[in-house]
């Protein structure tokens, strides 16, 4: 079971990871985009972090929806609508829940991925967020379906996200600003795939951490 507290911790952890990696994400975007990905994400997630205590009384779905609305109205750029769609669709997959079963977690992540795909219309290997998000969600689902634990699934998903993120390095971008570079986008890691890795890694840290402390 994933509790509401863990979901709130995840969002807090992700916000901190974004703050810590703000310069790094912006640097990655400077190479193939317009040098704002870290700045955009940090603007939105600082706002989310500041609001988390107000969200605490809501159920998980409403928390995710509030996060989505905050991101949509404060991030801007491509990542605003994309992360906004991730959390909006994720929220519709867990309506009314106070805690999440493994199947709920699968639905949440799968719906989030669908939201990003629908909004951005990117495909695998277009060198976008999808290249980290899609393998992470697929791996998580697969490990859960094999009957393994949430922590095992999220740890494997983090490995998949990291591999997906690194796999963007040799890719030629076909979506977003980086696509204008053609072959010059090769040998650069995609900033959006990198922030997605941080999101999955943050979830893993929270779930694994709470397992350790509850032992």
């Amino acid at each position: 079971m994933v509790t509401k507290e863990q979901i709130l911790q995840w969002l807090q952890q992700f916000a901190s990871a974004i703050a810590q990696n703000k310069e790094y994400l912006t640097q990655l975007d400077a190479a193939i985009g317009d040098a704002d990905h870290g700045i955009n994400m940090d603007r939105g997630f600082q706002k989310v972090a500041n609001q988390l205590s107000n969200f605490a009384a809501q159920d998980i779905s409403s928390i995710l929806k509030s996060v989505s609305m905050t991101l949509i109205s404060s991030v801007g750029g491509a990542s605003g609508p994309l992360y906004g769609s991730f959390f909006l669709r994720a929220s519709t997959a867990v309506i009314g829940k106070q805690e999440l079963s493994n199947e709920d977690m699968v639905s949440l992540l799968q719906a989030g991925l669908d939201g990003v795909l629908q909004r951005g219309k990117a495909q695998l290997s277009d060198k976008t967020m999808i290249d980290a998000l899609s393998p992470a969600v697929t791996t998580f689902t697969q490990i859960i379906r094999e009957g393994k634990t949430t922590t095992e699934a999220i740890q494997q998903a983090t490995v998949a996200a990291e591999q997906g993120m690194k796999a963007t390095i040799p890719m030629v971008a076909k979506k977003g600003r980086a696509s204008y570079l053609g072959d010059r986008s090769i040998n650069r890691q995609d900033p959006g795939a990198t922030s997605v890795y941080l999101m999955i890694q943050s979830l893993s840290e929270v779930l694994v951490e709470s397992l350790v402390t509850s032992d």
Binding site: I39, N40, I72, S73, G80
Partner: peptide, 11 residues
């Protein structure tokens, strides 16, 4: 107007 070089938001 959005932030510098960043699209404004739907709201």
């Amino acid at each position: 107007p959005g932030e510098v070089f960043t699209s404004p938001t739907p709201d």
